[in-house]
Design a protein around this nucleic acid. Structure first.
Lengths: 162, 162
DNA sequence: ATAATAACGGATATAACATATCCGTTATAA
DNA sequence: TTATAACGGATATGTTATATCCGTTATTAT
């Protein structure tokens, strides 16, 4: 199993948006260029973020994306779910009911113990993602970005936002 | 993202094997029949379990699969990894290094904070799966299986093991 | 010995999903 | 009026999961 690559893209893009001067917006085109990503496909992911309210969008020249709420109030989990969708990764198909020994559906109460255990693990995963704020991501990212890259980025965005 | 359906199959099958009288083995054919699963495909998954030592196999008539070690010493995590493979779900493609502002690879020390956060969540997931033993799965399963199904199952396996 | 069973590995076919592009539409700013 | 940019829908492509089939080897029962 592999997580959607768009998750990595979306988190990085949100982190950039979190560092944007208030009032400014970045179009998907610029974000794609900055990370060397396929423009149209990234645009699709940005639309998913927009639908969830994580970013707000404005059309037309000078338009683009900005954060939909403060970076302290966006969890890594929010971004992951926006891209990956809300469905649990483990899907119980109730094979315990199938086959020659299965009995009527109404004999089974709660979901089977195997599914419950798998879902508990998924809850632990989500909880961990829920603890991380976009602000933390942004801060750590800034701290750990090489100086040279930081300068190049500032210059590039300076030009881009002209 | 969706987890391999074979995980559900494998855990259920292991749970059956854990209830098998010592010395007995069940062929993939019988397991597939019992859960109404595609025989050859299930056989592939059983081979994965075998490669990891979770089950041991014996060829020829009367042969089949049995647990490779006591159910108390097999974690749900072991089964999940045997089927799903050891690779992490989140794969960092290092897009931070790409694009016009990226700098030389050796300027980047540890993996980026986003990947680290994603991997922390995955560790939480694995930890939770590591806490659950096959013996617990088996016990819970037995307790929650409808009486009628239990009787049918015993009869069916009785015939099957003749 | 011979026949039947069953795991095993490799090759292949099919279905589902992720990845990626394209197009027409709408909104908006210059 | 023109250019920009988000948006939604349709489509193409690639990759992975699902599923089957085959020949081989080991083993048991006849």
């Amino acid at each position: 199993m592999k997580l959607n690559e768009g998750i990595e893209w979306a988190v990085h893009c949100c982190s950039i948006l979190a560092s944007l001067p208030p009032g400014m917006a970045l179009p998907a085109r610029k974000l794609a260029e900055f990370f060397d990503l396929p423009e149209h496909y990234l645009a699709k992911h940005m639309q998913s973020l927009s639908q969830q309210g994580l970013v707000s969008s404005s059309k037309g020249p000078g338009g683009g994306y900005r954060l939909g709420r403060p970076a302290t109030e966006i969890a890594l989990l929010d971004i992951v779910l926006a891209i990956d969708g809300p469905a649990p990764h483990f899907r119980c198909t109730e094979i315990r009911r199938k086959g020659p020994s299965g009995v009527d559906d109404k004999c089974y109460g709660k979901p089977c113990g195997i599914a419950r255990a798998m879902w508990r693990a998924e809850t632990a995963w989500r909880d961990e993602l829920g603890k991380v704020s976009l602000e933390e991501i942004r801060h750590t990212g800034l701290e750990e970005t090489p100086h040279e890259q930081l300068e190049k980025s500032l210059a590039w965005f300076g030009d881009a936002l002209k």
